[in-house]
Amino acid sequence: MLGVDKTVVEDVDLDLVAGVFVASVRLTRSMRNRCGSCQKRCPRYDEGAGRRRWRGLDFGSTRVFLEADAPRVSCREHGVIVAAVPWARHQAGHTHHFDSQVAWLATQTSKAAVTVLMRIA
């Protein structure tokens, strides 16, 4: 349902009052410590800014977020950079599936319809 590969779901939190579903996830061993730009394995640099959230596709009227640690790695080519995650592009605040849905809607409907349906600005 979350549309994530090479990922382990550790915990889920459903807040019905706020209408938010948060899945706490972590990467599998094969995906850890990869450069966010080139995807090459790199030595870990530090813990980064802590945990981050990425917006996923809604479950009906409930907003969905993936939450995971975002350590930094030291890449020979790109320097110190946030490690890659398989569910989102580097420096994106939303998942691949969310991005694809918004892109398709943008080609089929008006901008106003996309912003209301996806709850984005």
Rank of each mutant, 00 (worst) to 15 (best):
D13R: 15
W87T: 07
W104S: 09
A49L: 14
C38S: 04
H78R: 03
R29I: 04
H96Y: 13
C38M: 02
H90K: 06
D99T: 08
D69I: 00
F59T: 11
R26I: 03
D46C: 02
E10M: 12
K111V: 07
V22K: 10
M118I: 05
A23V: 03
E47P: 11
V73H: 09
S61G: 15
S24I: 14
S24C: 11
A18D: 06
Q101N: 12
K111P: 11
S30W: 14
R89N: 08
V8Y: 15
T95Y: 04
A49K: 14
V64G: 01
C42M: 02
W54L: 07
A112M: 03
V9S: 01
T62F: 13
A106Q: 11
V82L: 06
A83S: 12
A92C: 11
M1H: 06
G79K: 08
G36F: 01
Y45V: 05
K40C: 09
H90N: 14
C38K: 13
R41A: 09
V102I: 07
A106H: 09
H78E: 01
S37D: 11
D13C: 05
F98H: 06
A92I: 05
R34T: 04
E67T: 12
V20K: 10
L117P: 00
G60T: 12
R34H: 09
M31S: 07
A92E: 09
E67L: 09
V116W: 00
V85G: 08
H96M: 10
L14E: 08
L66H: 01
Q108L: 12
V22P: 06
K6Y: 15
G93E: 08
R41Y: 14
L2P: 10
L66K: 00
A70W: 01
R119D: 10
D58P: 09
A121W: 10
V80Y: 05
H90P: 14
R55N: 03
H94D: 09
V12H: 07
W54T: 00
G36C: 00
L27K: 05
L14Q: 05
L57W: 02
V73K: 00
A18M: 11
M1V: 14
G79Y: 05
G48T: 01
E47D: 13
H96K: 03
W87V: 05
S110W: 02
G19E: 06
K111I: 12
V8S: 15
E67Y: 07
T109A: 10
C42A: 12
A112F: 03
T7G: 02
Q108R: 11
H97Q: 15
A23K: 07
A84R: 04
V82Y: 07
A23M: 05
H94Q: 13
L105P: 00
Q101Y: 15
G79V: 04
T109D: 06
D13S: 12
R26D: 04
R29A: 09
W104A: 07
A18N: 11
T95V: 08
L117A: 02
V114M: 00
L105I: 01
A68K: 04
V17Q: 11
D58Y: 05
N33F: 00
R29P: 11
Q39D: 11
R89V: 06
R72N: 02
A112P: 04
Q39C: 10
T62C: 12
P86D: 05
H94A: 15
L27T: 02
A68T: 03
W104R: 08
E77N: 13
K111S: 10
P43Q: 05
C38V: 00
Q101S: 15
G56Y: 05
V85H: 12
R34D: 06
H97C: 14
T95S: 10
Q39A: 14
G48A: 01
S61P: 13
